[in-house]
Amino acid sequence: MAWNVFKFCTGLRVVGSVMILVVLAVVSVSYYAVVISNYGPQLLKGGSETVVAAFVLIVFHALLVMLLWCYFAVVVTDPGGVPQGWKPEADDEDLEAQTMPLSASTVAGLNSGALQSPRIRYCRKCCQYKPPRCHHCSVCKCILKMDHHCVWVVNCVGARNYKAFLLFLFYTFLETTLVALSLLPHFIAFFSDVEDNASTPGSLATTFLGFVLDLAFALSVLGFLIMHVSLVSGNTTTIEAYEKKASTRWQYDLGRWRNFEQVFGTRRSHWLLPTYAEEDVRRMPSLRGLDYPVRAGIEGSEI
């Protein structure tokens, strides 16, 4: 039996909102290192240094605003719970069979796939039916199109905040890369005694710490970003990629372009924002998390 890495989600309860403070602390260190210690004072020196400082500060603040907007959008947005009383379209007898207590023979039948319809899914922990692509989280209960429970946002990443999560990764990578590159000359000067003697020990320490933290985050976030780009291109989630069989083409794989639209919508003006156009929300049920189009002629089983 494969080792299920998702069963340890219950341990995430103890982390709580402390991780939000950690994120804000890293942002504060970066802000102090870039704006207060280095490029803020550089604005007053005149010449080419002022132009460089102005460019760094404008881009830094623009990315910071988008990063924080996307981050708190993931934190406060409901990832998508199952509507109360939701039921799949099926005969009453089939639905009743899903909720009956399991006998030993029934369990054997379920394991063999002979008794349970793959289209009807029932969560015995939440005592409710599960829509397609819905999974149970030990912390957040049943979540529509659940990707994973993220300790950094103290929330599940699901159908309704997945786009904001991806944009958070994207803007975090850009911001941390910018900070690391902009602090690199000061980091080198830290070891070569070229740094201005007027710099305080606290300023030097913050510059050193900011460079190391942002470089580490840029490299780690890049890995997650590449992984999720691959998942979006196949219209799958982290859990689905873990569970499904790679030998068959995924039933929700509509092609890369349509897969992208299933997450980001069709309006280009909203692609880089953690929001959707009202028209997309109205005409694309997948953005609400309850109904997903499948490839023509596919009768895939639900995992």
Rank of each mutant, 00 (worst) to 15 (best):
D94Q: 05
G80A: 13
T77L: 08
L67C: 07
E93K: 03
G81I: 14
A73V: 13
G81S: 15
V82F: 06
D91C: 05
A73G: 12
Q84R: 14
C70V: 07
T77K: 15
D92Y: 05
E89H: 11
A90I: 00
W69D: 05
Y71M: 05
L67W: 10
P83C: 09
V75R: 13
V75E: 07
V82P: 00
G85N: 11
V74R: 10
G81D: 14
P83M: 10
G80H: 09
A73P: 03
D94V: 04
Q84D: 14
W86L: 05
D78C: 13
V76M: 14
P79Q: 15
V74L: 10
C70W: 05
K87V: 04
V76L: 15
P83D: 07
L67T: 07
W69N: 09
D94F: 02
E96I: 01
P79Y: 14
C70G: 00
A97H: 00
L68R: 06
M66L: 13
L68N: 05
G80W: 08
P88Q: 06
L95T: 02
D92C: 02
E93D: 04
Y71F: 10
P83W: 09
W86E: 02
W69Q: 08
E96C: 01
E96N: 04
V76K: 14
V75A: 11
K87M: 06
V74A: 10
D91M: 04
K87P: 00
A73Y: 09
Y71C: 02
V74K: 08
W69T: 12
Y71D: 00
D92F: 01
G85L: 11
G85C: 12
V74D: 03
V75Q: 09
Q84K: 15
V76R: 14
L67E: 07
D92M: 08
T77V: 11
V74I: 11
Q84C: 11
D94N: 03
W86R: 07
V74Y: 03
V74Q: 07
W69Y: 12
F72C: 07
P83F: 08
K87S: 02
G81V: 15
A90F: 01
V75C: 09
E89N: 12
C70P: 02
G85R: 13
V75H: 11
L95H: 00
L95D: 01
L95S: 01
W69E: 06
E89G: 06
G80R: 11
A97P: 00
P88L: 05
A97M: 04
Y71K: 05
D91I: 01
E89S: 11
Q84M: 13
E93N: 01
P88H: 03
V76N: 13
L67G: 00
F72H: 09
P79V: 15
L67P: 00
E96D: 02
P79A: 15
P88D: 06
G85W: 12
W86G: 01
E96R: 09
